[in-house]
Design a binder for these strands. Sequence first.
DNA 1: GATGAATGAGTGTTCATTCAT
DNA 2: CATGAATGAACACTCATTCAT
Lengths: 193, 193, 193, 193
Amino acid sequence: MRLQDESKKAAIFNATVKLVNEIGFAAASVAKIAKEANVSPATIYIYYKNKEDLLVSIFLEIKQEKTFASIRGFDESSPLKESLRKLWHNSFKFVSQNGDLQRYHDQFLNSPYSELVADQLGEDAFQPFLSAFESAAKKKIIKKVHFDLLKAFILPPLSMLANSRTGADLKMTRKNVESAFEMAWDAISLDRN
Amino acid sequence: MRLQDESKKAAIFNATVKLVNEIGFAAASVAKIAKEANVSPATIYIYYKNKEDLLVSIFLEIKQEKTFASIRGFDESSPLKESLRKLWHNSFKFVSQNGDLQRYHDQFLNSPYSELVADQLGEDAFQPFLSAFESAAKKKIIKKVHFDLLKAFILPPLSMLANSRTGADLKMTRKNVESAFEMAWDAISLDRN
Amino acid sequence: MRLQDESKKAAIFNATVKLVNEIGFAAASVAKIAKEANVSPATIYIYYKNKEDLLVSIFLEIKQEKTFASIRGFDESSPLKESLRKLWHNSFKFVSQNGDLQRYHDQFLNSPYSELVADQLGEDAFQPFLSAFESAAKKKIIKKVHFDLLKAFILPPLSMLANSRTGADLKMTRKNVESAFEMAWDAISLDRN
Amino acid sequence: MRLQDESKKAAIFNATVKLVNEIGFAAASVAKIAKEANVSPATIYIYYKNKEDLLVSIFLEIKQEKTFASIRGFDESSPLKESLRKLWHNSFKFVSQNGDLQRYHDQFLNSPYSELVADQLGEDAFQPFLSAFESAAKKKIIKKVHFDLLKAFILPPLSMLANSRTGADLKMTRKNVESAFEMAWDAISLDRN
DNA sequence: GATGAATGAGTGTTCATTCAT
DNA sequence: CATGAATGAACACTCATTCAT
């Protein structure tokens, strides 16, 4: 029998990301994706159960890659600030190198499909971070507020700044990334230092 | 609750907001909106040029209302922190009272339609704020960074915290709103106080 | 129950009969039949030229089996009434033991595929019956009418009564089968006896 | 506003009957019906909820017309045999004048759609007939058997004989129709007369 | 012989929009 | 102003069949 042609799956992946970025989730029809990937619409249904499965699977793939990239080099023994700074810079690096994936990721989270997947931080990969936050709170390094508040001053700013669409006229140079990190840290830390 | 004597246009407005909130932009078809508004599909085309015009017009209406509500009571002579605090609380108040409008607003900004409207802050109504920021920067009250960085630690956190969907398990009591504001202020101010 | 060592062809036969009975001819797609038979769709095309060939071949197989069962024990020297009674009871016995085959058979005859096969009675196996009818007509035992009229009071009633779907609330006990036979005989015979 | 164009509905009706007769229920797609009726596929969905509704509605329309035609002239005071004879001839007349409707009717009853509608005789229109049967049974005019047995020697033979497809080489002249009726009566009556 | 991958053509249905009243 | 009828184009998805291994 004929073997699965991995290049076809990759073509579908790329075509989907491209089209969703260009025209949005709703307008990116299966037929258009197929044409962009140089593949029959029916072929897509070999690799994915339906359109929802296609979009969700691609999101999860991207999310995993992004998570892996952002926690690279995490060291449990480092102080929280250093860990966070690493996460921050890792994230910006990933985005600057994979703008299209990030855009797909963001669009997905703001589409009705997002309700089909669990929470962003509810993953084992981030568990060490959560522990670090908790112990830092106990040591009075960071503010003792609901975790969602801390999150609100880390993820959304990061997302906006990384998104070339929303932060149009600001180039995220290394210096700007570092400035932004200091702002985030000031927001959540008890004493500046 | 649709009233008997409610004007057609208002009925269309309400139906659109309701449907978009319930099933999203893509699934909210003209036919469904018309049925929800107890109106013929053709009637919608009397008031709006097409579907895009309908969605954009409603967004702009909501945005204006929201802007007006958020800057209410702004006093040019107050220190920036006070002005900002007022803005912050005003915004949360608006959201808590108009959750449906806010949800439509957020969904719109994350849909492909958002590219059809100009930037959020590029409005005359916010001009006094921009001036206040500039003078505060000169007085070394807030950090001297690109304005987009300041924005990034005010609007996105506010948005996320106000959004009942994303900050699911955190009740935004007055105390939490104030805590969040202090975090935003710590992010952008030069010296805490 | 599909057996491990059952030949592919038998598996396809069973799967087809089962699916056609459950969801009908139109909905029984090649893919579904293949899955039910634990076989690749392509495999079906090894044994049958195409879908039409598959369905027709299976019908003919069933028809042959049914014909063979219904004429079992036919004795040319018996009077027509006895031969017919035997046929009648044989038929009901076959149906009661092979409901699924009978159902496929009936569905096929009422599908557009039926035009692809010749008439039911045009077979050599039934030839002795035809002769018996002819000689009985000459002996004024049965009515002297067009053979189609005789057929009309034997086959369709038999079919309907044997079909569990159409004769829902009537149990075809041996007594009922015999009553029905007497009715058929009264319809075609010249003098009751 | 534009009024419903009854000619469109009639065109859809005729196109559906024609196509179903020519290629069967499964192959008669909405697109083909629309093209045959010189109408957009979408137009069909103005008049019918979906394909099932289309096919069932047309069946019910035909059934009603057929029922009305077959019981025309029924007289409660006539003996059962006369009533039945009238029904028998009425039915053949209807079929000879509306072969296409009859064919649609028969095909429908043998399609999976048939399970969506109630039983053939379960109608008020036939109620007087049922009563006549019951009283005839009490008067020992017809055999005392399950009503389904009586039905089995009236409806299926009638159906087969009226169907030009199954009784190919037999012309149903008035004389043949009458012969057939006598056979049916012989089948169900206690004493010939 | 047997397979799963691959596909163009088709399925029933809904879309945004216009027409005629 | 307001309407429901009407539509061609598009939708997500499945079809019977063939291909390459």
